[in-house]
Simulated assay, not measured.
Amino acid sequence: MAAGHSIDTARWRAMFDQAVARIAGRFRRVEPRATTRAYLLRLLSQTERKNCWQLAEQADHDRPGPMQRLLRSARWDADEVRDDVRAYVFENLGADDGVLIVDRRGS
């Protein structure tokens, strides 16, 4: 992040919660919804290693089973979730001349 910039954590959390609420209906049961929220929150964290064991530990889970089940066998449509996230980003962060650049380097 550039020097001199700060993040309004309350606003960030509110926007995160709105985005998660938008996709929550794509998961039929409450458990995968809660696990999805925890998983995404930890993916966006500063945690260096992002495997199910590390993410579950950071989320204070005793074991990685719920996160592994979410990725392996929970019933949800990735295309629908992608479309929901895309629509949310466009509505809340988009501009007519905007460009989204994803930098996977983490810097």
Rank of each mutant, 00 (worst) to 15 (best):
I23H: 00
R29L: 09
V20W: 05
L43H: 04
Q46D: 10
I7C: 05
W53E: 13
G65S: 15
A21G: 12
G4H: 08
A21N: 15
D8L: 04
L55G: 03
H61Y: 15
D97I: 05
D84H: 08
V20D: 02
T47K: 01
R22V: 09
D83T: 15
T9W: 02
V99N: 08
D96Y: 05
V85C: 07
A2Y: 09
A2K: 13
I23Y: 01
R26Q: 14
R69I: 02
R28V: 05
Q18I: 00
Q54S: 07
R33T: 05
L43F: 01
E48L: 03
A74C: 10
V99Q: 14
R49M: 01
W12H: 07
R72G: 06
Q46K: 01
V99G: 01
A14F: 05
V85N: 02
R26V: 06
C52A: 13
F16K: 07
E91Y: 02
I7R: 02
L93R: 07
D77W: 06
F90V: 14
A59D: 00
R72Q: 14
R22K: 12
D96N: 14
Y88S: 05
G65Q: 15
R75A: 11
A21K: 11
F16A: 03
L40F: 12
R29C: 00
Q18E: 14
C52I: 04
A59Q: 01
M1R: 10
D79A: 14
A14L: 08
I23M: 03
G94C: 07
W53M: 04
A78H: 07
D17I: 02
E80R: 12
I101Q: 06
D17P: 01
T35P: 00
R13A: 12
M15K: 11
